[in-house]
Design a protein around this nucleic acid. Structure first.
Length: 543
RNA sequence: GGCUCCGUAGCCAAGUGGCUAAGGCAGCGGAUUGCAAAUCCGCCAUCGUCGGUUCGACUCCGACCGGAGCCUCCA
């Protein structure tokens, strides 16, 4: 295969000789060819976390998905700049730090470190910039001044608000009108001209962290940092803006309002939103979706008639969030390999909700073992480590692809077509399973484990090189599984096992199966599995 | 009440206006094995319900039922 470029591809992509890639946008509700602001370059911004508590699994979804997006685009020839912001100034951080008796800065630093460690464990490696709100206060203030100068915002008693009535197409992302929007309530409500106006700058209360501004001491509102920092790092119009589906309103709607009012150009060409984590198995305690006005504002008669229905809903899946008491991600890592978590995140289409729990994770771990058994087979046959194979990072084909045979070439094409179609990792993953089957079948049919013919070894190596290339696009199987925890007795155990296996082999040769089976049964009970293969007996620890 | 999305085999989960409706887990049958394990082969769905559009729909439209998200902080 030389190239997967489709004739009639989008102008920018085709001009640069790049494959055509379709991307879905929440704004248009359909897929469109990836045409970029600068040909061959992709600017991508993902809304990162507010760092006030340890991150949970929900915070990992976006980064893993967009890391995969970047891997695929980079592999396909684009140059990608990926920005993930850190919100390190916010009411919640202030409240939490006060409760802990520490400072906002210290808490934010601690939680940012936790977040970064979690990302690293999942193989999220492609983030180019991680701007912090507190490091861009000047940028933010300048942005707000620009909005005021254009008549899109107004100062009010130390606060600054965005005036939604000045934005003709406010609500276009989520198809809602200003009247349908309630906006922040509480004490700020009386300082706003309309309910749907939202804060760009918040006046500091006594004792709160504050920065000087033309409107007095205060701090940025929630949405403004993303508008200001994305402009600073990616420009007023960039290519992909991502985030969780729960951020579409109000966060992204308001980002669009701010940025497009100031710049008079689209903020982002594509708005990509990932589905939210659901707790699998209905174990999560759902707080409950409340009907409009059920918060004691109105007497709430007719509208809130679904108490029984709410009880039923509590038995089914519910979004994982702070309200469901999601456990810190690092606790999860104590029970599960991070690779299995990434595997699970990518096995569902990114826009769908993902059922998360012990069962699905266990299933992924088991599925990964089938892949790793193939890697071990490959290593026994060729003496080469799958993980040390060269990983081609460009999708232009080469001799190794053709040398792997027709089945592999076809699977590779299917994989790439799936990824080109709005990053369909679910189908891409399916082809990986097909891949394992093709490789195992080849090993079986050519008796590679008994008497390896050089030509067959070369073919198998070519097959595995393609496999390595594709798994790298997904960020899977990047490193060898962690060594078994054997408490430093590896050498001794290996020698003893060698002896035991030899004795058992002699017993089998003498048709003394009672002894042979006794050995195997006892070892199994001790957590060691024996496998009698064509090329000898192997063993593996199984906790 | 408003705005989105979803409902595919026992479970998870892709996908399409008409060819055999991906893949995984579980299950069943077979090959292989002394027996296992691993591996391979085969089997296992008419696509929530009811209407409509169409030569033809699981895929388009409508209604209904069920579920999720957002409308207030949330990845």
């Amino acid at each position: 295969m030389t190239t997967a470029t489709t004739p009639g591809a989008n102008a920018a992509g085709a001009a640069a000789g790049l494959p055509a890639i379709e991307v879905y946008s929440t704004l248009t509700k359909k897929k469109a060819p990836l045409v970029t602001v600068r040909p061959g370059h992709v600017g991508m911004y993902l809304c990162g976390p507010t760092v006030y508590k340890p991150s949970h699994i929900g915070h990992m979804v976006g980064p893993v998905i967009f890391d995969t997006v970047k891997r695929h685009l980079g592999y396909s020839g684009w140059q990608v700049t990926w920005v993930v912001n850190i919100t390190d100034v916010d009411d919640k951080i202030i409240a939490e730090s006060a409760a802990r008796g520490t400072t906002m800065a210290r808490l934010a630093e601690e939680m940012t470190a936790d977040y970064l460690a979690n990302l690293a464990s999942l193989g999220v490696a492609g983030i180019d910039h991680m701007p912090k709100a507190t490091e861009h206060i000047g940028t933010i203030i300048a942005f707000i001044e620009g909005l005021i100068a254009k008549g899109c915002a107004y100062a009010s008693d130390g606060d600054v608000y965005f005036d939604v009535t000045q934005d003709a197409d406010y609500g276009k992302l989520t198809n809602r009108s200003v009247e349908q929007t309630q906006g922040e309530g509480g004490s700020t409500a009386e300082r706003k001209r309309s309910a749907a106006d939202f804060a760009l700058w918040k006046k500091a209360k006594p004792g709160e962290p504050a920065w000087d501004s033309p409107w007095g001491p205060g701090r940025p509102g929630w949405h403004i940092e993303c508008s200001a920092m994305s402009k600073a790092l990616l420009g007023p119009h960039f290519d992909i803006h991502g985030g969780g589906l729960d951020l579409v309103f109000p966060h992204h709607e308001n980002e669009i309002a701010q940025s497009e009012s100031l710049h008079d150009c689209p903020m982002a060409t594509f708005w990509m939103h990932n589905g939210l984590m659901q707790a699998a198995g209905g174990a999560a305690g759902k707080v409950g979706g409340r009907p409009r006005g059920a918060d004691g504002t109105s007497g709430g008669g007719a509208a809130a008639g679904g108490d029984a229905a709410a009880d039923v809903a509590a038995q089914t899946a519910a979004k994982i969030s702070k309200s469901t008491g999601a456990e810190p991600f690092r606790n999860l890592l104590a029970r599960h390999r991070p690779e299995a978590i990434r595997f699970l995140l990518l096995s569902t289409h990114y826009r769908s909700p993902i059922a998360f729990g012990e069962e699905p994770l266990g299933e992924c771990a088991r599925a990964m073992e089938a892949f790793e058994r193939l890697f071990a087979r490959f290593q026994r046959i060729t003496g080469r480590s799958f993980h040390a194979l060269p990983s081609r990072d460009r999708r232009a084909g080469d001799a190794a692809v053709a040398a792997a045979g027709g089945d592999v070439v076809a699977l590779r094409a299917k994989f790439l077509a799936a990824m080109d179609d709005d990053f369909n990792t679910a189908i891409a993953m399916a082809t990986l399973f097909d891949f394992v089957r093709v490789a195992n079948k080849f090993i079986d049919s050519s008796a590679l484990e008994k008497q390896p013919a050089p030509a067959d070894v070369a073919t198998l190596t070519a097959v595995m090189e393609v496999f390595r290339e594709l798994t790298a696009v997904l960020g899977l199987f990047l490193v060898a599984p962690a060594a078994q925890p054997t408490a430093g007795d590896d050498d001794l155990v290996a020698k003893l096992m060698e002896l035991v296996i030899e004795i058992r082999a002699n017993a089998r040769k003498a048709k003394d199966f009672a002894t042979a089976d006794l050995v195997r049964t006892k070892l199994t009970a001790a957590g060691i599995l024996l496998e009698d293969r064509a090329d000898g007996t192997g063993w593996v620890r199984k906790a």
